[in-house]
């Protein structure tokens, strides 16, 4: 592409686009350290809004709930999603139907899955709470883990699986001693991605968490705060939430790119 590009124009485009992407969130981060808390006036650097967060019981309990949901759903999704990926890639012939089922959770509009699950749980008379949020989050989380692991499996040398079998290993032994260690970076990358998605997910949690105050997750809390009265603490909260995502994604990206040391 370089041959067609005017370097100066390209630089202007990149600068404009990155400014568009990063100015709004940077403003939030800056405001979270603004003593006065108002966007229109800088009154001095302060971390007091972070302190406020810690004293806000609603936010802390929502954060705890989110952590529970994200950890449990990520664990389940990582297990199921990785097995699914290996199962799909080990077969030479791919089924279109299978592909659709696996792909669907990633493209189905959140609102549709959310109301579908809401109807499903209510018709089965399931009391909704954090457990139903977890059940629901596993659906899309496992699809994302599966897609990350599958991408790595595309470059996986399947002959090492045959080599292991040839040397006398049964299938479970091969999975545990050969496939798992080689795939571990990709599996962890997938898990980190799932964790991020789950921490940030709002719509499905909103519909499947039930009415109880004790099953409010952090994004639900943020939504409520934005909608019914913005307080300056939200800037601090937003900064922390973004930081968590950024760290998890960066780690995920590194693991996935580098592969195993010595590979």
């Amino acid at each position: 592409m370089a041959s067609l590009a005017n370097p100066r124009l390209m630089l202007v485009i990149l600068a404009a686009v990155f400014a568009f992407l990063y100015v709004p969130i940077s403003v939030l981060v800056a405001l979270s350290f603004n003593e006065g808390g108002l966007p229109t006036a800088w009154t001095g650097f302060s971390t007091k809004w972070y302190g406020e967060l810690l004293r806000n019981g609603d936010i802390m309990s929502a954060a705890f709930n989110t952590l529970v949901v994200a950890l449990v759903s990520t664990a389940l999704a990582t297990l199921f999603g990785s097995l699914l990926a290996v199962g799909v890639e080990i077969r030479r012939r791919k089924g279109r139907f299978l592909e659709t089922i696996i792909f669907a959770p990633m493209i189905i509009p959140d609102i549709v899955l959310a109301i579908a699950l809401l109807s499903f749980f209510s018709l089965l008379n399931v009391t909704m709470g954090l457990h139903t949020v977890i059940l629901s989050h596993v659906v899309f989380n496992l699809a994302f883990v599966c897609s990350v692991v599958r991408a790595r499996l595309k470059t996986f040398d399947w002959s090492i699986v045959e080599a292991s079998t040839d040397l006398g290993a049964s299938m479970p032994v091969t999975l545990f001693r050969i496939v798992l260690p080689v795939m571990l970076p990709a599996i962890i990358a997938g898990a980190l991605l799932a964790f991020t998605l789950s921490v940030d997910e709002f719509i499905i949690a909103f519909f499947t968490a039930g009415a109880g105050r004790d099953s409010i997750t952090l994004p639900m809390q943020i939504f409520a705060m934005i909608r019914f009265g913005v307080t300056p603490e939200i800037n601090a909260l937003a900064t922390i939430v973004m930081a968590v995502s950024v760290v998890a994604l960066t780690l995920s990206q590194r693991l996935n790119r580098g592969g195993l040391p010595g590979q």
Partner: peptide, 27 residues
């Protein structure tokens, strides 16, 4: 294949990337 007294040396060698040479041979 895992019960045959027959072994195969693979075209790609199929060495286990996460194991040392000794570990590969011991497997």
């Amino acid at each position: 294949p895992n019960r045959r007294p027959v072994n195969l040396m693979f075209q790609s060698y199929a060495l286990f990337p996460h194991m040392s040479i000794a570990q590969n041979i011991a497997y």
